[in-house]
Amino acid sequence: MRIRVPTVILSLVVASAVYAAPVTPNPSHLEKRGWAADQLEKLFTKAISTLECGACVAALVGAKDIAYLNKNWVLSAVTGLCKQFKIMPEDVCTGLVYSQGPVLINAVMQANLLSGDGKIICHQILGACPAQGVTSGALSFPKPKPVNIQPPTHSGNLIDVLHLSDWHVDNEYVVGAEGDCNRPLCCRKYADSPLNPKRPASTWGDYKCDSPIKLGVDLLKFVPKVANISFSILTGDVPPHDIWLQTKESVVIVEEIAYNTMQEGLATKVYPTVGNHETGPV
């Protein structure tokens, strides 16, 4: 899709006229210094500081228009605001926006923001708009429902199956590290971790942390004591919640460690599937 620069400027000026101080656009400044990104930052600041529904939708409209020119401008503006409002530590702001943001921007670019999609997004992200009602619609299936289906005859033999889900074992869990930190995932040694934690991480985990390796290993050791399992199923979500640090390579390493741990701890086959934490964005 080809987007004319004056058209994008016009849409931002209209939004800015309502939610920000008037600014005279200069196309050359847009190309050289990111004038549009400055305007976008004003729109997002208004949305975050007021939590007004209209301001939030206007910010999304501005983000969508700017994304057609340069998606990095949108990512840069959101990262700056995350740091400015101290929503999260700076490293988390940067990692979270640049790892999760590109796919979310693509979703916003496909959304019809002025017909209701914008209010849905603003409600979910900021709570800035009222919850939107569920719309009705017809759901079609690729083929008709089978008729006169007879269930197979039960053999009478019962087996035990181990169902594992949301493994989320943190290989970087450190006993004694801060359990109530300023990041989405604690019980790790970060660069700014306190020398004397106010809530030291215990051997078995903490509320704001993922599970330590010992907890996962001991769980697998305990299973044979209570059940004679025939096989196991793992329904996804293996990596820890450090999504601002994750890459494809890091997730693969975590998956391999987890599967090896299960293979060593269980005497049966494990049939896995993926969850949302195996993909990006989460």
Rank of each mutant, 00 (worst) to 15 (best):
A138P: 03
M1H: 14
L60P: 02
V174D: 06
K225H: 11
A77W: 07
S28G: 03
T268I: 10
I66L: 15
I121D: 00
A111D: 10
L215A: 06
L75A: 00
P272A: 08
L96Y: 10
N148R: 07
K221Y: 08
V23W: 05
K145T: 07
M1A: 12
P281W: 06
Q100K: 14
V270F: 08
V223S: 04
S165A: 07
P130V: 10
L51C: 03
L234N: 01
L40K: 00
V13A: 11
I159P: 05
S49Y: 11
V223D: 00
K119L: 03
S16H: 04
A21P: 05
L51H: 06
P281G: 06
D160Q: 14
L104Y: 15
M1F: 15
N148C: 12
L43D: 00
L158T: 11
E278T: 03
S99H: 14
V13H: 06
L69M: 09
V274G: 02
V92G: 03
P239W: 07
N106I: 05
A177Q: 10
A201G: 12
L81A: 02
M88E: 01
N157D: 07
K269N: 12
A58Y: 05
E256P: 01
G156T: 07
T235D: 10
I257H: 13
S250T: 15
S16V: 04
V223R: 13
L81C: 04
G116A: 04
T24D: 09
T79D: 14
D166V: 02
